[in-house]
């Protein structure tokens, strides 16, 4: 019934995302889009680090790559990652947004426009406000908005800003995010 899951995270989200990816059912029926901030100069190694424990293949997609279920698409370093009509990835080197490229807001906004009420958006630990507006857009289009419990976050700014900006469907600890995703269809 859903078409995609999109996850945004920044400082303090690496371990959380690793745990989530290691617990995904291997036949997960949806694509997972990952927009995670990282150091601009660390361009390689990140996808490998995430792949080690992930049950889903983790891909840094090429521009216009077809989005397929059961795969995790990681926004490549130094590119914004959009979702386009025809269920394709589109990349961009436009200026940074919220001091970030990739920007979580941009990925969430474009995914919300394409998948509308069939999108699950999740915001994890992070030190800036990028992602908060994007999660609001997911909600505005009728999708499901989830934030990691700020009490559990290493850095709360991103989740707290998200909660201020939009009423969310769930505030979950990592374990509950994992349980929730097990049941997603």
């Amino acid at each position: 019934m859903y078409k995609a899951v999109i996850i945004g995270g920044s400082a303090g989200s690496f371990q959380v995302i690793t745990r989530i990816l290691s617990s995904m059912p291997p036949n997960f029926p949806l694509p997972v889009l990952l927009c995670l901030h990282r150091l601009k100069h660390v361009r390689s190694g990140f996808v490998e680090a995430l792949s080690i424990k992930s049950t889903l293949p983790v891909i840094e997609p090429m521009d216009k790559e077809q989005i397929k279920p059961g795969r995790a698409y990681l926004a490549p370093a130094n590119y914004h990652m959009y979702v386009e009509l025809g269920n394709k990835i589109a990349l961009s080197t436009e200026e940074v947004v919220n001091h970030s490229r990739p920007s979580i807001d941009l990925s969430f906004i474009t995914a919300a426009q394409i998948y509308r009420e069939k999108l699950i958006g999740i915001i994890l630990s992070g030190a800036n406000r990028d992602g908060a507006y994007g999660l609001k857009k997911v909600k505005d289009h009728g999708g499901i908005a989830i934030v990691q419990n700020p009490a559990e976050c290493q850095v709360k700014t991103m989740t707290e800003t998200s909660l201020k900006m939009t009423p969310v469907d769930h505030i979950f600890n990592t374990n509950d995010i994992i349980k929730y995703l097990q049941k997603v269809k």
Binding site: A90, S92, E94
Partner: peptide, 9 residues
């Protein structure tokens, strides 16, 4: 042009 980028621009 790629419509998402063009809209943003």
């Amino acid at each position: 042009y790629s419509d998402k980028s063009l809209k943003r621009r």
